[in-house]
Amino acid sequence: MAEVLDDEQLQKLQNVLYIQFHGLKFEEENTQLITSESGWQKILKLYAASKRLENCADSTIKQYTDCVVKLITALNKRLCDISTNDIRFYLAMFQENRKCSISYMDTIRRYLSSFFAWCSDEGFIPRNPMRRIRHMKVPQKIKKPFSAAEREHLRCIATRERDIAIMEFLYSTAGRIGEVVALNRSDIDWGNREVIIYGEKGKKERKVYLTEECAYHLRKYLLSRTDTNPALFVGCRKPFGRLGKEAIQSMLSQLGKKAHIHTHPHKFRRTLLTDAGNRGIPLQEIQSYAGHKKPDTTMMYVTVNEENVKASFRRYIA
């Protein structure tokens, strides 16, 4: 400050600094990343183990741990030294650099909050730096399901019987993509037109059913196959490996682009649950079919048909 202050002002500044910082000790911040197995990595492994005991899916646990690794790597600080402002800085830079939505940013906040709350409860850190970082207000947007015409259009432009079977199966069972790709041909009970799905979330079994259209296209597809792979859905070329999530997502995305319809696997699940609600199936039964723990989760999927609301209003009130 010598360039901008005279001697008297410098003396005044010096006195103020002496008085204000008396009794305080300043140390250079330690930015050496702890990479030993005895450091944050070991703690993160213990955290992942605790999430497995809570019956969390492996894919969910990976999302949690990946989020924590990115934070600690970016901040380059010891776990116990990470402050609330450090996390605010990280979240701000993350959003600015990647242009993420508020919804996605709140998901990251939720992952980090879970980890640091656990670390604090277990005594690995003296305080929880996420405690003062509040929930982000996410704009509520109604996610529309497919209309009947859109589903028919997708079926018409599909050139493979397999792709039609996949779309009908996703709709009929309201299965999550991870649950569907794990199924085998032997899992189908053709006599009762049903299949038992092992829940990707919550890891509970639930029984789902096949519509006539789904059973027809699925049987037609399976009869056309010449491979011996036990998987329910496989690739179209040798070695006819089991289809993964990415392959089905890519196939549906390409169909959607041709049809000019926003298409992804989870939209079929939303459509079935919405159709079930509009046709009078009780919420509790829809919740059970979807494999949701709470009815609030089911309500997030079920889009209320405005025409039904209008008809009910006129019938019961107007």
Results as ranks from 00 to 15, higher is better:
residue 159 T to A: 12
residue 127 R to T: 15
residue 131 R to F: 06
residue 154 L to F: 06
residue 123 G to Q: 14
residue 127 R to V: 10
residue 116 F to C: 09
residue 168 E to G: 02
residue 130 M to R: 05
residue 164 I to F: 00
residue 132 R to P: 02
residue 172 S to R: 00
residue 145 P to H: 11
residue 181 V to R: 02
residue 153 H to R: 14
residue 123 G to N: 13
residue 167 M to G: 02
residue 136 M to G: 05
residue 147 S to A: 08
residue 148 A to F: 07
residue 166 I to H: 07
residue 166 I to L: 06
residue 112 L to S: 09
residue 130 M to C: 04
residue 146 F to T: 01
residue 173 T to N: 01
residue 148 A to C: 06
residue 149 A to I: 06
residue 160 R to M: 06
residue 144 K to D: 13
residue 120 S to W: 13
residue 141 K to T: 12
residue 138 V to D: 15
residue 152 E to T: 12
residue 166 I to P: 10
residue 180 V to M: 13
residue 164 I to W: 07
residue 152 E to A: 14
residue 138 V to L: 13
residue 117 A to T: 03
residue 143 K to Q: 15
residue 152 E to N: 12
residue 169 F to L: 03
residue 161 E to G: 15
residue 143 K to I: 12
residue 112 L to Y: 12
residue 166 I to Q: 02
residue 174 A to M: 00
residue 170 L to K: 08
residue 152 E to P: 00
residue 115 F to S: 11
residue 151 R to I: 03
residue 166 I to D: 05
residue 175 G to A: 07
residue 177 I to Q: 13
residue 126 P to S: 09
residue 175 G to M: 02
residue 144 K to V: 11
residue 139 P to R: 00
residue 126 P to K: 04
residue 151 R to W: 04
residue 132 R to H: 10
residue 167 M to Q: 03
residue 169 F to A: 08
residue 172 S to Q: 04
residue 128 N to P: 11
residue 113 S to R: 13
residue 144 K to I: 08
residue 146 F to C: 01
residue 156 C to E: 13
residue 138 V to F: 08
residue 112 L to W: 10
residue 160 R to L: 06
residue 125 I to M: 04
residue 154 L to N: 12
residue 158 A to V: 07
residue 123 G to M: 09
residue 131 R to T: 04
residue 139 P to G: 06
residue 119 C to T: 14
residue 123 G to T: 08
residue 150 E to T: 03
residue 155 R to A: 00
residue 130 M to V: 02
residue 142 I to Q: 14
residue 178 G to I: 05
residue 156 C to I: 12
residue 156 C to F: 15
residue 146 F to L: 04
residue 178 G to H: 12
residue 112 L to F: 09
residue 143 K to Y: 09
residue 164 I to K: 14
residue 149 A to D: 15
residue 122 E to P: 08
residue 138 V to A: 06
residue 125 I to H: 00
residue 123 G to W: 11
residue 155 R to S: 07
residue 136 M to I: 12
residue 169 F to P: 03
residue 159 T to D: 14
residue 121 D to Q: 15
residue 124 F to V: 07
residue 160 R to A: 13
residue 137 K to V: 00
residue 170 L to H: 07
residue 130 M to Y: 08
residue 116 F to M: 07
residue 179 E to C: 05
residue 120 S to R: 06
residue 145 P to E: 08
residue 124 F to S: 15
residue 161 E to T: 13
residue 116 F to I: 03
residue 173 T to W: 13
residue 130 M to L: 07
residue 141 K to Q: 13
residue 144 K to N: 14
residue 151 R to H: 01
residue 169 F to C: 08
residue 122 E to D: 00
residue 113 S to F: 04
residue 130 M to E: 12
residue 118 W to T: 01
residue 124 F to G: 08
residue 127 R to G: 09
residue 153 H to M: 10
residue 143 K to C: 09
residue 146 F to D: 03
residue 126 P to I: 02
residue 159 T to N: 08
residue 169 F to I: 03
residue 112 L to H: 11
residue 169 F to W: 07
residue 173 T to A: 09
residue 149 A to E: 13
residue 180 V to A: 10
residue 122 E to G: 02
residue 121 D to M: 13
residue 144 K to G: 03
residue 176 R to K: 14
residue 117 A to G: 09
residue 180 V to I: 15
